[in-house]
Design a protein around this nucleic acid. Structure first.
Ligand SMILES: [Mn+2]
Ligand SMILES: [Mn+2]
Ligand SMILES: [Zn+2]
Ligand SMILES: [Zn+2]
Lengths: 150, 150
DNA sequence: ATCTAAATGATAGTGATTATCAATATCAAA
DNA sequence: TTTGATATTGATAATCACTATCATTTAGAT
């Protein structure tokens, strides 16, 4: 849960400043279910700090990405969705083209295959994004109902 | 090479019109090396038809995607890159974060693993995008030179 | 050749993200 | 604990990729 210390040390290591806003945005992201976009992170952060700015949200999300504490995913909408990184569970994403539902996957096998493939080519892989799209159980035949969104 | 016939028939099947512009854009995409973005496709098309419009390029690329004749990839820049589909060789992409070079992969094993994983969850997969990023052979240690771009 | 709906192209508009910059806050040093 | 240098913020303008609009053109049927 609290990657707060590693955040603080990573920040200080680079001569940056640990601000109230940065801590808040990380907390918002870590306490979020699913894959909020920048606007959602902004809305949640604003509940706790009404003076926070949109630009700061974007800047901080970019910073968290650089530090490896957040990932950005393209889930088929025209904008990014974010997720706090839990290094113990790298996972992949499926998006239903009809209802927009996002399903998460784990596959150590795909991770292994990818790594060995890349090593053979002399590539140093820092990030893997696997994204499928198609139709979920409910949307596949001739439609039951489907609720959740990214 | 010439998926021109399948294009013509797919177009007519839907009561659409086979225009000079649509044929040109498909030809441009098929004769392109690498992964041109919309602007590059526009530039190449304009060499052969100076009157062609940007909107038509976007519209046609979207159409080709729908018909399964083109794929769009997010290679880490903020915009899409396109590629004519060669159904015999589904492949994946690696982007070097330093020099921007794109390396292509083939992995029947990953394709198989993905398909079986999704079937277990009742998902109908229509599209798989696997994208790694990191540092290529030349950019990994302390830098040799690196040329090609997306 | 004529007709009609689909498609085009110029351009305005949109939505997401980034740049700018004066005001503010962090944090180290005095 | 004040002070001071400067990193950061927040309001907002700007940019960038892409989409909508609409008058004009064109493909393809008759
Ligand atoms: Mn996820
Ligand atoms: Mn490719
Ligand atoms: Zn669905
Ligand atoms: Zn490189």
């Amino acid at each position: 849960m609290r990657s707060n210390e590693s955040f603080a040390s990573a920040i200080r290591l680079r001569g940056m400043k640990l601000t109230r806003q940065r801590q808040l945005i990380l907390e918002v992201l870590e306490s979020s279910r699913g894959h909020p976009d920048a606007e959602m992170v902004y809305a949640k952060a604003k509940e706790r700090d009404p003076r926070i700015g949109f630009a700061t949200v974007y800047r901080t999300l970019a910073l968290l990405k650089q530090l490896g504490l957040a990932e950005e995913h393209n889930l088929g909408e025209g904008h990014g969705h974010f997720e706090a990184v839990d290094k113990t569970k790298p996972h992949f994403h499926f998006t239903c083209l009809k209802c927009g539902k996002v399903v998460e996957f784990v596959s150590p096998q795909i991770l292994r295959t990818t790594q060995s493939l890349c090593e053979k080519k002399g590539l140093l892989v820092t990030d893997i994004h696997l994204h499928f799209s198609g139709y979920c159980r409910h949307c596949r035949p001739a439609g039951s109902e489907c609720a959740e969104k990214p």
